[in-house]
Write a protein that binds this DNA or RNA. Structure first.
Length: 749
RNA sequence: GGGCGAUUAGCUCAGUUGGUAGAGCAGUGCUUUUACACAGCAAAGGCCACAGGUUCGAAUCCUGUAUCGCCCACCA
């Protein structure tokens, strides 16, 4: 017996060595498995892309859980002999990463404007590179069997080609447009953000009732009211029936007399306040909608930094947060304040990444039109035949509704539908520097007027895929590139196929796309899952994946979301260091149903370290007692009792295999734990002590073969869950020819 | 305002198609018997939130109630 079994199992001395062995073998790469006849070229494929972690720092326990679940699937399929690809990568996470670096700069008493675009980007790239290296190391520590040779980054050269190609196609087909729309402006981050990047926070403020001519209007934001010259009420509101649409009324307002115009619109809630409101179309989405419907003037009141504009006269240049009280005081002096309510509770919109309070603004931005009809030339989407007219929204709905894509657990399908049904056009331009720059170039000569498109009327415009600076083919003018960058999810949306070489028609793309499964957290179902479905159905006419498996969030032992600022983060590296990767993985799998949040404590991880040691000692016992024996897979002289035990294990493996196929990893893990500890160790090993001493020759040899057989199968079936300790034990297993456990075949029964 | 989830041993959670409940930690007792003292074994601990219903049988399915949590939403 190998001397190493005389000491307790030591993950630290084992894991790095084992991972290197795996990596050197090349078997993480499906091409090498084919070349070395590990898999047959007609075997089925299993492919999965790693949800690329943001290069904003380090991986947390949630990532560790994700890696564990995906690695179980991947190792299982590889052992089944399938052509198995797990494709790793990282995400540049535009706003998140830029914000992070800006915070570092702030500590150094400088900022991005002082550095300039180029220098700043160098700085971000350096930070991103360091984060990437940390992440790659953490993934290795967790035992993730990803194919490093295919690693991708959402902002590398190949992905840039994919992004530009996608953008150009969408632009050419008018599904991307540029227009003046009301957007979510983050005064802190100095950029627009999409609806999904908003976090609403409850706030209690005062609510003001102001006299507006014959009306009383309610508002929580008097500082926006300077330009309000439309007063709106519901067409069915009997209280205001005597006022007619378009009627004008002269009245005294904040900075003097104005003429207000009556508007009737159904967006008004008759129950709320007085049922009358004035509108500020430049700074409110509802008001903007009303103004659009009635073709009203829109005026900007607040600038990009949250300061009042000259329309506010003496208040111009003052921050709105400060101006409010001063304005109310003036209104009071003029006798325009009817009353003020305290304790008005409402939700304010803040930017997820910077925490800035969103100020809606009308801006010229790039959008993806989700409701615009177009003809899809090639479609494998059920219910949407090739050549038919459809919309991006319909494509997104059809895939899940028709069951072409399954979401696990099923309840998230409803969440998905609700979101899509309420989806507005997607604002994809960001006024930040880090990210894919919008591949659109302009010059001002207007040499070739293009008609019919709002975004083409003022400038000569060109979208290109190549990187070089274009020259106008009509006049000699040089183009300059749009300064905005793309929403990070635009590039992540292409992930399942941009990683496989698209737009080139690579063999990888043919073989591995659509991917088998997407495994990710339920918190990014909108951000990412929906965008991937949008991009893939549109650009490829197919689905990005057949199944979506959603895992929950990993919280601390008190159920609070882990975050650095709270200091309750458990670092997976610390845990693998203390208890080993196998223990860390098991603790994240067992006791966690799909889509459910899980609480993690160190105790739980420690418990599974004991399990690894238990396996170690089980092996020690078996090896000690079979030192004169070589495992014979075809041994047929089992005693009746032993044959029965063999059959029982066979049933359990069948059961566990079914659990894995049905994504019930938590059950499979628990059953294996239970079998190893309570069947094998407590019962079978205990009775074997007696049998091996007192039994006759046939009984003893049967029992020895049985023990080896059970151990082998247990190692095989446990390998996806606890890859390191099983591989290490396997290296001492008395079988004449064997390969790495990584590529041994999954037991049939 | 709409939707979803949770409620099971002192604590944190499992419980796959309905067959009278399991893991870890904590606590109790026993054991150094050569696989395991970074230990093992054993016992103890639960009207499975509450109230109805379906069923031969419900933690599991249905209805309602309560508490907690999450997500979504352009009531100014």
């Amino acid at each position: 017996m190998d001397e190493k079994f005389l000491k307790p199992y030591s993950p630290n001395e084992t894991e790095d060595r084992i991972y290197k062995m795996w990596e050197d073998s090349g078997f993480f790469n499906p091409d090498i498995c084919l070349a070395k006849n590990i898999t047959a070229d007609d075997s089925e494929t299993f492919s999965i892309v790693l949800p690329p972690p943001n290069v904003t720092g380090t991986l947390h326990m949630g990532h560790a859980a994700m890696l564990a679940i995906e690695d179980i699937m991947v190792r299982y399929h590889r052992m089944k002999g399938h052509q198995t690809l797990w494709l790793p990568g990282t995400d540049h996470a535009a706003i998140a990463t830029q914000t992070k670096v800006e915070k570092i700069l702030q500590k150094e008493k400088t900022n991005r404007h002082e550095l300039g675009r180029e220098k700043f980007l160098e700085r971000v790239e350096k930070f991103a590179q360091e984060s990437h290296d940390t992440i790659a190391n953490q993934m290795r520590k967790m035992g993730s069997s990803v194919d490093w040779s295919r690693e991708a980054f959402t902002l590398d050269k190949k992905r840039e080609v994919a992004v530009r190609t996608a953008f150009k196609k969408m632009y050419d087909e008018e599904l991307i447009y540029r227009g003046h729309r009301i957007v979510n402006w983050d005064p802190k981050g100095q950029t627009t953000i999409s609806d999904d990047e908003i976090v609403r926070k409850e706030e209690t403020t005062k609510f003001y009732y102001l006299k507006y001519g014959p009306f009383t209007i309610g508002t929580s934001r008097p500082e926006t009211k300077f330009g309000d010259k439309y007063v709106v009420m519901h067409p069915d509101d009997k209280r205001y029936a005597k006022y007619k649409e378009g009627q004008t009324i002269d009245l005294e307002w904040i900075n003097g007399p104005i003429t207000a115009t009556i508007i009737k619109d159904e967006a008004i809630d008759m129950e709320f306040g007085t049922g009358v409101m004035t509108i500020t179309p430049w700074h409110d989405a509802t008001d903007f909608g009303i103004a659009e419907r009635h073709n009203l003037d829109k005026e900007q009141v607040i600038d990009e930094y949250g300061k009042l504009l000259p329309i506010a006269q003496e208040f111009a240049g003052i921050k709105i947060s400060i101006a409010r009280d001063q304005i109310v005081e003036k209104l009071q002096n003029k006798g325009l304040v009817e009353r003020i309510d305290d304790g008005y509770v409402h939700n304010i919109a803040t930017a997820e990444r910077t925490g800035g309070i969103i100020e809606p603004q009308i801006k010229e931005q790039w959008f993806v039109a989700v409701n615009k009809k177009f003809v899809i030339p090639h479609s494998e989407i059920e219910g949407i035949p090739s050549g038919s007219e459809t919309t991006l929204k319909e494509l997104m709905l059809a895939t899940v509704r028709k069951g072409q894509i399954d979401i696990i657990p099923e309840r998230f399908e409803r969440v998905y539908f609700d979101w899509i049904e309420n989806l507005h056009d997607w604002c994809i331009s960001r006024q930040i520097w880090y990210g894919h720059r919008i591949p659109v170039w302009y010059h001002e000569n207007k040499c070739v007027p293009i008609e019919g498109r709002e975004d083409d009327v003022s400038k000569c415009i060109k979208t290109i895929v190549s990187e070089s600076k274009p020259k106008c083919e009509h006049c000699d003018a040089e183009y300059t590139q749009d300064t905005d960058t793309l929403d990070t999810w635009f590039s992540s949306g292409l992930w399942t196929f941009s990683t496989l070489g698209w737009p080139e028609e690579t063999s990888d793309l043919k073989k591995f796309h659509p991917t088998t499964i997407l495994e990710t957290g339920y918190d990014i179902i909108f951000f990412w899952v929906a965008r991937m479905i949008l991009m893939t159905t549109y650009l490829l006419g197919t689905i990005p994946f057949k199944t979506v498996y959603m895992h929950g969030l990993v919280r601390d032992s008190k159920g609070i979301k882990m975050s650095k600022s709270l200091g309750n983060v458990i670092d997976p590296l610390d845990m693998t260091e203390k208890y080993g990767a196998d223990a860390t993985r098991l603790s994240l799998i067992i006791g966690t149903g799909p889509g459910n949040d899980t609480r993690l404590s160190e105790d739980k991880i420690r418990a599974y370290k004991k399990f690894a040691n238990k396996l170690w000692n089980i092996s020690r016992f078996i090896f000690e007692n079979t030192e004169d024996t070589t495992y014979d897979a075809n041994f047929s002289e089992y005693t009746e009792d032993d044959a029965k035990i063999k059959a029982e294990l066979s049933d359990i493996i069948t059961d566990i295999t079914r659990d894995i196929e049905n994504y019930r990893f938590y059950l499979a893990g628990e059953k294996l734990y239970h079998y190893a500890w309570h069947n094998l160790a407590d019962t079978i090993l205990e009775e074997s002590k007696e049998i091996l001493i007192t039994g006759d020759a046939n009984t003893v040899s049967s029992r020895k073969q049985l023990l080896l057989d059970i151990l082998k199968k247990l190692l095989l079936v446990l390998h996806p869950f606890t890859p390191f300790v099983t591989e290490e034990i396997w290296s001492s297993f008395p079988q004449e020819t064997k390969q790495l456990l990584l590529v041994e075949k999954w037991p049939n029964q």
